[in-house]
Amino acid sequence: MSSNEKLERELDSFLDEKDSRIAVLYRKLPKPEPDAKLDAAVVAMAHRAVPTSTSPRQPRWLPAIGAAAVIALAAGVAFLIGPQIWQSRAIMPAAMQGVSAAKNVVNVHTQNEPSPPPPPAASPTVESTATLPAQVPAGMAAKFETAPPAGEAAPMSTPNIDRNAAATQELQKAENATPQLASPTAFPERALRKPIMDSTESRQTMSAKSQAAQANAASDATSAPESPSPQTAEQVARSAAKAPRAALRSYPSTAVRQWNRSWSTNEPQTREQWIAVIQHLLNEDRHDDAVQALAEFKKRFPDDELPPDLRDLK
């Protein structure tokens, strides 16, 4: 084996690290390393190049998630509290409108005395909205879940409310005291009885027959109205003969008999019934009553044409 071949074999062994005596010997050499100072210098240089790398890396999504959570929380709070704040702001002008509306209602009622009963002024809703804001701070009104309508709320001005309530109570008292005013269809009982009980002039002009009839009617009114006497039945039969048959059939005979006691219970409903009643009164020579009944008839049926026998009745 030539020296060249031996060298080539050793080179191959050195490159393959197989049985390379030189390589084995080299690895037994001391292994110097950089000292700690040099290591620190290199590492510091590397970290200076990327200054933020020394601190633990925080996830980038963490600030984004935090910001989103804060926004969602703020939106939720605004969603819960916002409408209440807006309601409390809206209550003030609505309340002022309610005060003026209530004032107008009072004025109308006081000017037009015989009018339909006003809406109840002491309803719980109006009371709560009318009195609470005068007693509690304005911010407390925001706790009401439903704002009252502008026409009902009158929270600020208690004197106006008192005046409104007083006027309403007066109207109710008047209605209770004179129900005939509240009910325009009711015929005044006192007006019906007056010619019978007090008018001596009419009594003098009455015929004996009509006096007897009045006496019977008065006795009926004071004694037992529910049990018709045979004489009253005859009178009803006579008046029914003069009145239209349909009207007499539709109108109860007991009502005809009791007509002068209380119109509020069995008042005539139709035109024919009214006419029958008026004719019945005339037949009984109760002229004043017939005139009043006719006036009431004209109120009820202003456009209707009177029968010929009633046109000249005054």
Partner: peptide, 17 residues
């Protein structure tokens, strides 16, 4: 390390120093 990971450089340095 090129993306900014300093700890990666530390590991790399320990291997090659």
């Amino acid at each position: 390390y090129a993306r900014g990971d300093g700890r990666a450089f530390d590991a790399l340095y320990r291997r090659q120093r």
